[in-house]
Amino acid sequence: MRNRFLTPGLPFASFIFLSMLIVNVMGESAMQSAKEKKAVMIIASNNFRDEELLKPREVLEKNGVTVTVASSSLKEATGMLGAKVKPDILFTDITVTDYDTVIFIGGSGAGEYWDNPIAHKIANDANNAKKIVGAICIAPVTLARAGLLKNKKVTTYSSTINDIKSAGAKYTGNDVERDGNIITASGPAAAQKFGEAIVKALSQ
């Protein structure tokens, strides 16, 4: 009787092995599809939020995405928590067709892009080209004022909820929200999830 119950152990072990193999292959396939993708992350020239740049960038690069950092100045930018980052390019030199995703990073300095016509054009060009458009913390206000968030499910930092609602966005309060090709996140605590959501979108 005992043998009868033990015998299925071998096929079950084989099943587990095959399942793990399939998961591995699928994981590699997702990574392959994110590899060779290109992202541009736009930060404020001063007081960007450190985690909102560094964590998503780490996630993207680990998945084979090439990341370019853009800002309104080529001088070393300082984050709110002291991180020092030398931008690669001026945001005014961004050619949207060169990238698969355009990401606006938050922090108290990110308000410099809220009413910037070039930032609005970059966001609109990326959206019209069906690129992934990301924004975290207070940066969704830039997308809102560019006209991208009307009737879209969106999240943002608590201080800017009314700003996006007044632009017709549907605020959800989630850590990370995706509506079509637009991905938004609520703030520093959601930075990791934000990066993962962008990688997932790039892999689809």
Rank of each mutant, 00 (worst) to 15 (best):
Leu54Met: 08
Thr101Leu: 02
Gly134Asn: 06
Asp93Cys: 00
Ser73Arg: 05
Phe17Arg: 07
Ala44Asn: 09
Ala185Leu: 08
Asp179Thr: 13
Lys150Met: 13
Lys35Leu: 02
Phe194His: 05
Tyr171Leu: 12
Ile161Arg: 14
Pro56Lys: 13
Asn128Thr: 15
Ala139Arg: 03
Glu177Lys: 10
Leu202Thr: 12
Asp50Phe: 06
Asp115Ser: 13
Ile43Thr: 09
Ile16Trp: 04
Gly64Leu: 03
Leu81Thr: 06
Val102Arg: 00
Gly187Tyr: 03
Ile161His: 07
Gly82Ala: 04
Leu53Trp: 00
Ala13Asn: 07
Ser14Trp: 10
Glu177Ser: 14
Met41Leu: 14
Lys62Val: 01
Gly134Ile: 05
Ser166Met: 10
Leu81Gln: 11
Ala185His: 08
Arg57Cys: 02
Ser159Pro: 04
Gly109Thr: 12
Pro188Gly: 11
Phe12Lys: 04
Ile105Tyr: 03
Gly64Gln: 06
Ala77Gln: 10
Glu61Thr: 11
Val133Met: 02
Asn127Cys: 02
Val176Arg: 09
Lys153His: 12
Phe91Trp: 07
Asn3His: 07
Ala70Phe: 02
Ile89His: 00
Ala83Gln: 01
Lys121Arg: 15
Ala185Val: 14
Thr142Glu: 09
Ala44Glu: 07
Ile136Glu: 06
Val176Ser: 06
Ala44His: 11
Glu112Val: 10
Asn46Ala: 15
Thr68Tyr: 00
Ile42Phe: 01
Ala167Trp: 02
His120Glu: 02
Ile132Gln: 04
Leu21Gln: 08
Ala167Ser: 15
Arg49Leu: 03
Ser203Thr: 12
Leu149Lys: 00
Pro188Ile: 09
Asn3Tyr: 09
Cys137Ala: 13
Pro117Cys: 12
Asp50Trp: 05
Val199Pro: 01
Gly111Arg: 11
Glu76Ile: 10
Glu58Met: 09
Glu36Tyr: 09
Ile198Glu: 06
Ile182Ala: 01
Ile138His: 03
Glu28Phe: 05
Glu28Gly: 05
Lys121Ser: 06
Ile164Phe: 02
Asn63Glu: 10
Thr172Gly: 10
Lys200Asp: 08
Met80Leu: 13
Gly147Ser: 11
Leu54Tyr: 01
Lys62Cys: 05
Gln204Trp: 08
Ala39His: 02
His120Tyr: 04
Glu112Cys: 08
Ala70Met: 10
Ala146Phe: 07
Pro140Gln: 15
Leu10Arg: 09
